[in-house]
Design a protein around this nucleic acid. Sequence first.
RNA 1: GCGAGCAUAGCUUAGUAGGCAGAGCGUCAGAUUGUGGCUCUGAAGGUCACGGGUUCGAUCCCCGUUGCUCGCCCCA
Length: 422
Amino acid sequence: MIIQKPKGTYDLLPEKAFSRVYAESKIREIFDLFNYREIRTPTFEYTLLFKRSIGENTDIVSKEMFTFNNSQYSLKPEMTAPVIRAYLENGLYNQSPLIKLYYISNMYRYERPQAGRFREFSQFGAEAIGSSEPFIDAEMIVLAAFILSEFQIRNYKIKLNNIGTPDERKKYLEKLFNYLNKFKNDLSGDSKKRLQKNPLRILDSKMTEDRKIIENAPRLYDYLEQSTIKNFEQVQSLLSGLGISYEIDYFLVRGLDYYTSTTFEIVSDELGAQDAIFGGGRYDLLTKQLGGKPTPAIGFACGFERFFSLMEKYEYCIPEENKCILYIVTSGNKASVFALNLIYELRKSGFKCEMDYLNRSIKSQMKEANKINAAYTAVIGNNELDSGKILMKKMSDGNQTEININNINNFLINENKTGKTG
RNA sequence: GCGAGCAUAGCUUAGUAGGCAGAGCGUCAGAUUGUGGCUCUGAAGGUCACGGGUUCGAUCCCCGUUGCUCGCCCCA
């Protein structure tokens, strides 16, 4: 092999591709059940869109974007900004005050790959645009939990926080900065840099030297307005009422600038270092930031590869692929021509069937039929062409039934009725 | 961007205190006339990741490169 796939990408071979498509369709059904409708946006956008929304100082924008054509365009690193862009550009707010959308799409981030992290990866997610009511916060989290439970994924943790409004954060940031500044020499190298740029993010640090300092840091929660706290409490009581268990993580900070108020993350300790499967929260100011009217909104995204690896860990059972109902074994050129036409007719009638295209021996063809798990085989050679009769061999027990070739359609219809063969 | 480990057939891997490269699975074919699974037989398939060095001789030792994996940062 001379040319390999680019770093951080992967090929989905038929078996896995089938499982993925199955999972996708099931996810679509769940979104539909919750009355979310699909939106698809371009693979790339103007780079400016991401700079304005995600934030110029975030890791995603500052070092992880696949950017091209003199930085004019970027492959999308996440979906919220494109969805809001499309929402505004197409005037979806004119359709209804609350728009509920979902997506399943590839994303691109130029990072070092590791377990659960790719440069081209897939996310599915939901965005509910137009409501600031805690009900929609609760629905969003229930939806995520429901998807997990429908795929029999267990042992996950829902982490919940409220990071307030920029005004609330501003007051807090001063306090936080003063506190952290006292320990400035003990902070990790990265956190020293963040102290000036974005001290809030230090709270998210996993470095042990930082953790100790963070433990006693002032909490943003104590600087939130009464209305924010009330809202947060409502979200919590709604979740409890729905039987959703969660834990408050006062230091949960999301790495994208547009988040406000409710934020949440769902983690699993079955995933290795990259343990977050779902991430989401409110972004009440984003619509205005992108030039629209102020419109509250909330959403989440789920990393499909991580989700999928959990499906595998919990041994979620993917239904089997459809098997061929009939494999036609041919002997001789005339028979092949006949079979080619026959299976085309059968396929037009909806029967999945197959024949040999390699001029192989009858034995080899039988082996092939067995390998692909065909329910029936029928040998066609000069004898059959002359007599017009064939033996339908049931592969599960080896019994053969003689029928007229003209009756093959009816025979297969009856077999389909008597249960799934093969 | 930083750190660690790994690299032998399509897959899983064995291997030599440096001396012509092995297995299992898979693939393909055959085991007397036109019938699969089990069994048996056989075949194809490797520049032992790439480049340099040491050596009479390197898959093995040394250096470099690339790739993969895992971790840090950050995120899904």
